[in-house]
Design a protein around this nucleic acid. Structure first.
Length: 733
DNA sequence: AGCACGCCGACT
DNA sequence: GTCGGCGTGCTC
């Protein structure tokens, strides 16, 4: 009696392939297994995942069926629960199952040519002095004694000690060093350590009791932890994780961007021993080695970005998502999943609790809390006893009318910075734009400098180039207008470089540092700036998003937020939400110490509800106003969106297919309930030499749409047009 | 993803 | 007259 395996291959098709299980592999090829199968006319070896084991071959003609060639991993890589999760992701995000599953396995496991992890060695015993007659070995031990964590990679050791691998082997045999697979712990700078919250505030205590109750029940629950900046959410994470670990279970902590949260690593590594931190710098081999060690049960806690959700921790007991509103949780390539939503489904499959934390939760999560689907936990006071900063909304129209000729920053902000410096305190100025100015244009003929491939303006980077922030195209600097020859050009819309320059000019005695992705190309540069800022060697920090998150410097008493309306007035229904969140996050950097804080918000539309609510730190009011607007237009969280993006070199083809597809979608059996908008030209209608159109589907609230389009062929793309389906899109540019 | 089949430009 | 460009289509 033969058995057959349905195999999901990562070849861009939703179909599964049926293979016979040969006697030698009988009982070993199980759902969730990673296998090699002969594929195609030349029978080349393809890797795939067994998702089902059947008694018969189904409707495939038996003569076409080939046999599974081998097991690529001795045990299933997916538990039944995780396989079920993969199916859900595949259905919900309209992504082939094989692609979903392949995406959850680190490249080093996936590839046959698993490049081995770089070996690392840790010091077991001190006492290099004893090795008088083995200078090479002594050198190695001396090096390891002085290195953070007493652990280093083989390459580093050999370079530092100037010895050969044989020396290390001898030391390993003597038991003086041990070979480890773990990845180095993040270098934790003491200056960046957050305050230790020893005792919980009454509010924290209350939230913690609720968390404990759900951990005790060991069932599925979503806990939305809404806590203002500085309210001690992290301390609650630590306690919850501690509880889970003490029950012999494991936990995963997702962070929006690992490079931006060094203090998070430091805090967790200080409290727990068996912590695996996924950093972005891991090579494929290191990632694979770490993955195997996690699967083997060597770690209790994994901290990492969204992909860490799929790390194979045995006995997972808790999932935590910090800063759950962050858009980085949405993957922008297939499968286009949102880690928050997947975490919730995963927790329900595994019957465990999940904690979503944020000072400014997403509209989606707030609505789920309101509807009673999530348990809301609120922290409304700062753990250290400090208070939220006072926010001053500066009316820039007033500024413009006054005698003071406005530059990048308002007069009240400038005055406040002056006072801050006089008191020996520090300031942060936030501007959501890199470069010197957003665009350059000719004051004579009015033409702007644009990207020929994307048809958007090029950002001016001073003394460097014009840069397209979408395709990365660089154009050399121009003195004159390329159209009419007029000089000089006018530069509009300030960026970090311009604000930096202005601050230097205004405050010549102060040390001003810019912090954006252009200035902080390496992690080291970033750390160096943070250390200098902590040591008060930098007085004013100017930066983009980078300065918005997690920085905890008690001496920062002033925060300036300029040009925020660039964000507020983007053609995107989430623009007010993003702006509100951003202001709250940035404002939260001020007044973390005992000295109190002031935030200056330079805006023209002072009455806008996003500005007003942010200034008042009133998220509940923001939620109410925003909800009524979204409800009216059936935008999320009151209904869902599916975005179908069409791209191609020929504008005519893209347009024609867009019209055809929209017409077809209007005729599906869902047409009466789904609103089909478009095809329309998105805000970025031409990028990288490709014309773009999109169709937006508004799916009504409560309509179950797992499998809304069971016939995924609706979205098949014809010649010359690429079709991308984005379920729950976060960006519609 | 590969690897084939299939129709239009520069080569021995 | 062919060799080869990569566009499109199939793979249990």
């Amino acid at each position: 009696m033969n058995t057959y395996a349905k195999i999901a291959l990562n070849i861009g098709t939703h179909g599964l392939f049926t293979y016979r299980i040969p006697p030698a592999l009988e009982g070993k090829v199980l759902p969730g297994c990673y296998v090699g199968v002969p594929f195609g006319p030349r029978n080349r070896m393809a890797a795939g995942f067994c998702v089902e084991v059947d008694r018969g071959p189904g409707d495939i003609p038996p003569e076409r069926i080939k046999a599974v060639a081998k097991l690529l991993y001795p045990e299933p890589l997916f538990s039944p629960e995780m396989l079920s999760l993969c199916r859900w992701i595949s259905r919900y995000y309209l992504c082939p199952l094989g692609e979903v599953m392949a995406g959850m396995i680190p490249p080093g496991i996936r590839r046959r040519t698993a490049s081995r992890a770089e070996p690392r060695y840790v010091l077991v015993h001190r006492g290099a002095g004893a090795l008088k007659r083995a200078p090479a070995q002594r050198k190695v031990l001396e090096y390891l004694e002085n290195v953070p964590g007493r652990e280093a990679s083989r390459r580093d050791i050999l370079r530092a000690a100037g010895c050969t691998p044989g020396v290390l082997r001898v030391l390993e045999e003597k038991g003086l060093v041990r070979r480890v697979f773990s990845v180095s712990l993040p270098e934790a700078p003491s200056v960046l350590e957050g305050r230790e919250v020893e005792e919980l505030t009454p509010e924290q205590e209350k939230a913690y009791r609720t968390i404990r109750k759900h951990l005790d029940q060991e069932t599925f629950a979503v806990l939305l932890l809404k806590g203002i900046t500085g309210s001690g959410k992290t301390e609650l994470y630590i306690r919850a994780i501690g509880d889970v670990l003490s029950r012999g279970k494991t936990a995963v902590l997702l962070v929006p961007e690992i490079v931006l949260t060094p203090q998070m690593h430091a805090r967790f590594s200080a409290r727990f021993e068996r912590v695996a931190v996924m950093h972005s710098r891991l090579s494929a081999g290191e990632r694979a080695a770490l993955w195997k060690e996690i699967k083997r049960g060597r770690f209790d806690l994994v901290i990492g970005p969204r992909s860490a959700l799929f790390s194979p921790l045995p006995r997972l007991g808790l999932i935590i998502l910090d800063e759950e509103h962050e858009h980085t949780y949405k993957q922008e390539t297939a499968p286009r999943y949102h880690a928050r939503d997947v975490a919730v489904v995963m927790a329900s499959r595994l019957r465990i609790p999940v904690i979503l934390g944020s000072a400014t939760p997403s509209m989606e999560s707030l609505r789920n809390a309101e509807a009673g689907k999530y348990v809301l936990l609120t922290l409304s006071t700062r753990a250290g006893g400090g208070s939220l900063p006072l926010v001053h909304v500066v009316d820039m129209t007033e500024e413009r009318r006054g005698k003071h000729r406005p530059g990048g920053i308002s007069l009240p902000l400038a005055r406040r910075i002056e006072e801050t410096l006089r008191r020996g305190e520090q300031a942060i100025v936030f501007i959501n734009q890199r470069g010197f100015s957003r665009f350059a244009c000719c004051p004579f003929c009015g033409k702007s400098i644009r990207c020929p491939r994307c048809d958007i303006t090029l950002t001016y980077h001073k003394e460097e180039f014009f840069l397209c922030h979408y395709c990365g195209l660089r154009k050399p600097l121009l003195r004159r207008c390329p159209v009419c020859g007029h000089a000089p050009l006018a530069f509009k819309g300030a960026g970090t470089q311009k604000i930096e320059e202005e601050l230097r000019a205004r405050f010549p005695a102060a040390v001003v540092q810019r912090m954006d992705s252009d200035a902080m190309t390496t992690k080291r540069a970033y750390r160096r700036v943070l250390t200098a800022f902590a040591e008060k060697r930098i007085h004013i920090l100017v930066g983009t998003q980078i300065v918005a998150k997690g920085l905890d410097f008690p001496n920062v008493t002033t925060v300036g937020i300029v040009e925020i309306e660039n964000m507020l007035h983007l053609p995107d229904f989430r623009a007010p939400e993003r702006t509100f969140n951003m202001i709250c996050q940035v404002a939260g950097r001020a007044g973390r110490g005992s000295k109190g804080g002031h935030v200056f918000l330079d805006v023209y539309d002072t009455e806008h509800y996003a500005i007003q609510c942010a200034a008042a730190h009133d998220i509940d009011r923001f939620y109410r106003v925003e909800s009524s607007l979204r409800k009216e237009l059936h935008y999320p969280p009151f209904g869902s969106l599916v975005r179908v993006l069409l791209e191609g070199k020929s504008r005519e083809r893209v347009n024609a297919y867009g019209r055809e597809l929209a017409a077809r979608l209007k005729k599906t059996r869902f047409a009466r309930r789904v609103i089909v908008l478009g095809p329309a030209e998105p805000p970025l209608g031409f990028i990288n030499g490709r014309h773009r159109r999109h169709i937006l589907l508004k799916v009504p609230d409560k309509m179950p749409y797992g499998g809304l389009f069971p016939d995924h062929r609706v979205f098949e793309s014809p010649a010359g047009v690429k079709v991308t389906v984005d379920v729950d899109p976060l960006s519609m540019l």
